[in-house]
Simulated scan of single mutants.
Amino acid sequence: MPHIITEPCIGVKDKSCVDVCPVECIYEAEDQLYIHPDECIDCGACVPACPVSAIYPEEDVPSEWASYIQKNYDLAGV
């Protein structure tokens, strides 16, 4: 399961997570960063690097941000 970037990233786009991603699967969209689900190796390196705690394993995304699962997939084009 890939990791998902959720609402706290909107407008922030700090990119600390990009720097630690070993497979470079985090991309920039208009208002947030997103993780390409087919490229993510589920290593979790991005989670502690996020300064706004916006990244979760897909199965652990809080219910209030569940719509970001599909948003990440849509941004990735899958």
Rank of each mutant, 00 (worst) to 15 (best):
V23G: 04
D19I: 11
K15A: 12
I35N: 01
P48Y: 07
D42W: 10
K13Q: 10
V12F: 06
K13S: 09
Y27F: 14
D42Q: 13
D31F: 10
H36S: 15
A29I: 07
P8I: 02
I35Y: 01
Q32V: 08
C43I: 14
C9D: 08
I41Y: 05
V12I: 09
D42Y: 13
P37G: 08
V18D: 02
C21P: 09
P37C: 04
E7G: 00
D19M: 08
T6G: 03
G44T: 13
V23C: 14
D42I: 01
K15C: 15
C25Y: 10
I5C: 00
D14N: 15
P22N: 03
P8A: 01
L33N: 06
A29E: 11
Y27D: 03
P22M: 00
P22K: 00
C21F: 04
D42L: 02
K15I: 06
Q32I: 11
I10Q: 04
Y34D: 02
V20R: 14
E28R: 08
T6H: 06
E7N: 07
V12T: 08
A45V: 12
C43N: 15
D42S: 09
D19H: 12
E30W: 12
I41Q: 08
A29C: 06
E39V: 04
I41R: 15
I10V: 05
A45Y: 11
C25H: 03
D19G: 15
V23K: 11
G11T: 01
C43Y: 13
C17P: 06
A45N: 15
V20L: 03
I35D: 01
E39T: 12
P37A: 02
K15M: 14
I41M: 07
I41K: 10
L33R: 06
A29D: 13
Y34W: 15
P8H: 04
Y34R: 10
K13Y: 00
A45W: 05
H36T: 03
C46M: 08
C40L: 11
C25R: 06
D19N: 14
P8E: 07
E24A: 14
P48S: 00
I26N: 08
E7H: 03
P22L: 00
P48L: 03
A45T: 05
D31N: 12
G11L: 11
C9F: 05
I5V: 13
C25V: 09
V23D: 13
V20D: 08
C9P: 03
C46V: 09
D42G: 11
P37L: 02
G44D: 09
E7S: 06
A45M: 11
L33P: 10
P22Y: 00
S16M: 12
C17S: 13
P48V: 04
G44I: 07
E7R: 15
P22H: 13
C25W: 12
V18Y: 11
I5R: 00
P22E: 00
E28W: 00
T6P: 06
A45P: 05
D42V: 15
C21D: 05
D38E: 13
P37D: 01
H36E: 14
C17M: 12
G11E: 04
P8F: 03
C25G: 04
V12L: 12
L33E: 02
C46H: 12
T6W: 07
E39P: 04
D19T: 12
V20S: 07
V20M: 07
S16T: 10
P48W: 06
S16P: 01
L33I: 07
I26Y: 13
Y27K: 03
C43H: 12
I41D: 04
C43L: 15
D19K: 06
